[in-house]
Design a protein around this nucleic acid. Structure first.
Lengths: 348, 348
DNA sequence: CCTTTTTGTTAAAACGTTTGCACAAATCAT
DNA sequence: ATGATTTGTGCAAACGTTTTAACAAAAAGG
């Protein structure tokens, strides 16, 4: 029922092709007709039919975002939402729509993605997780389909990734504590199978060595990205004969667990133990005391992923160039709050 | 380059129409051809082109989800993510894709939506907010476009809405406290311009009256959905000559503020003040003490919205029926935790 | 002034489906 | 056996665009 390019053409007394060219700002259209046609389009309320356009142009102007399975963890939920917002904002700005997809099993996921890809519904895809050996990554890589992975992965050489420089970030966090005068610093890490845990640990180590401080393996504790892990790490450190005066903590949630534990035992933060952690979630400024944290710019991460994907799609369409590996780094920044605002008096 | 229905047809020695009918399980296709064609499709790796299909069938098998503007509040972020997950899960299960859209200004929002609607990219839309007098709602309603609003709205008569029964929920929360033996109960509300605040207050009032307890206006405090509001409400109540023994709190975040304040002043929860609140966010079970809270089933809310929209779309396609108002209620449930697990000793 | 180039427009094919209509073959009713 | 119905398949039009090739008119070049 809606008004088509032909209707406009008829009323303007020109051919459909002309109208189409007006739409795409073809250089060889006279200013006069262009004006006239535009006026009529406006008047008739013409809107191009995206499906028809896609059919012939073989491009859909939309990006697929593959959601990971339900995440129980609060942090992940806010993380993904922020990420998606960044992706959508940038996509829309470039005239792309975003199609969401998810599956409850791995097989379902692959099926859903292949339906989108082979069915020609999306021009590129963004993956929001980085399981090792992911079948969806395999699939996209095999098909030379433009795709961006948020996170780090060595799985395939032709993947575009967007990530935080976690080594740098951890080094920054650690240097801050050193600058505040701390000489005995512990590290609370995440699951050792995650690249992010390892990278942050590495950055911590480097900053220590760079400052000529000893890297003590017995002051490293591993755990999950959960409050309980923090609580446990806290007990561990507090029962040590010789204790660190400051901690670098792999995630804010974990820090909350530490804060709670220290408070229960009557220790003060930052006077007894100073804390710096990562991710700067919204809650970080509301805790007692507010947490010094590395903001990893989640929105920006999504934004960059979107940007990189669109670029890749356009490169492919233009040059037919194969996708080759790229790594985009999104800058982080240290947000100073009370939890690290204390210099231990003991010099040296 | 990819394999089309014609390729399959040729190789199977049948006409394209036959292949198409096999695909749609047309009743008048013989079992033999069906089998043969299916085998060939499998073998050749055929995937139907969604765009072509949409073009002729005038149905896109996708739903639009209109994101609200950036929400700074933590709760909203986790809320939306959970909601989206519910929407996507149910949509995918019914063979629908989900297209996300957002705009940074109101005008942009309307533009984006009208592009999706008029451009024939989506079959229906889900709105995730309920500002009063929303132009997007206006637009959709004017166009008789299938749409579902998550939340309550009296703006238009032909809207389908999905919501929690907040009056019931608040009554349930209040009854629980009464049952625990509380007779002096206060209420910490949200912004009075939000329907949700008013509804919860109404439910609170009803439960009191039903139990023959006095509804005291001076035991009602209004605020935001933020920790600080809770802190302020706490000071207010604690400075009263005659104090409630329990509080019904409009949101978990607000409760956290109250908990923090009470802890600072040395009061115990639930012994000195019992607390019940709403939304049951992931953090609620991690606070000290864990919060008794009304779980409003956010995932389920999204799931239901998706379901209702798909139903509306199909009804419209079949009967050409106009959209008429519906209100779907998603059940809530009271999750009991420590913050309300105490019966005041004073009988009567 | 005639040839060449540029400018503005159009007709028609193509994109990959679905579907109404037609029609032959097979099945059924009598 | 004959006509009526059912079953299985194919033809061709349609969906709303884009785009190639063609061409007339206008402008430029000599």
């Amino acid at each position: 029922m809606s008004v088509t390019i032909k209707d406009v053409a008829k009323r303007a007394g020109v051919s459909p092709s002309t109208v189409s060219r007006v739409l795409s700002n073809h250089p060889r259209i006279s200013h006069a007709t262009s004006e006239k046609v535009r006026a009529i389009m406006e008047d008739m309320g013409y809107h191009p039919n995206i499906m028809a356009k896609s059919l012939v142009s073989k491009t859909t102007q939309s990006l697929g975002v593959i959601l990971p399975k339900p995440a129980e963890e609060l942090f992940l939920n806010t993380f993904f939402m922020e990420l998606i917002r960044g992706i959508v904002a940038q996509a829309n700005r470039n005239g792309y729509d975003v199609v969401l997809s998810s599956g409850s099993s791995e097989q379902e996921e692959v099926d859903a993605v292949s339906r989108l890809v082979y069915g020609g519904r999306i021009d590129g895809a963004i993956l929001l997780y980085s399981r090792k050996n992911d079948p969806v990554v395999d699939f996209l890589s095999r098909n030379q389909f433009p795709a961006v992975l948020v996170g780090r992965s060595e799985q395939h050489s032709n993947m575009i990734t967007v990530d935080t420089d976690n080594i740098q970030a951890a080094a920054d966090a650690t240097r801050h504590l050193i600058q505040m005068g701390h000489r005995r610093i512990g590290f609370v890490s995440g699951p050792p199978e995650l690249v992010v845990s390892l990278d942050r640990m590495e950055g911590f180590k480097r900053a220590l060595q760079e400052a000529g401080l000893e890297y003590r393996k017995d002051w490293i504790v591993e755990g999950e990205f959960l409050q309980e892990s923090g609580y446990r790490a806290m007990s561990f450190f507090m029962n040590l004969p010789e204790r660190p005066t400051a901690l670098v903590v792999v995630d804010d949630m974990v820090s909350f667990g530490i804060l709670r534990g220290l408070h229960e035992l009557g220790y003060r933060v930052p006077e007894d133990v100073a804390i710096v952690s990562f991710n700067n979630i919204a809650l970080s400024e509301l805790s007692t005391p507010p947490l010094t944290s590395i903001d990893i710019g989640i929105y920006h991460l999504g934004y960059t992923a979107s940007q990189a994907l669109i670029q890749a799609i356009q490169d492919k369409n233009k040059n037919g160039a194969a996708i080759h590996h790229q790594r985009h780094i999104v800058p982080h920044r240290l947000v100073l709050r009370e939890s690290s605002m204390f210099s231990p008096s003991t010099p040296k």
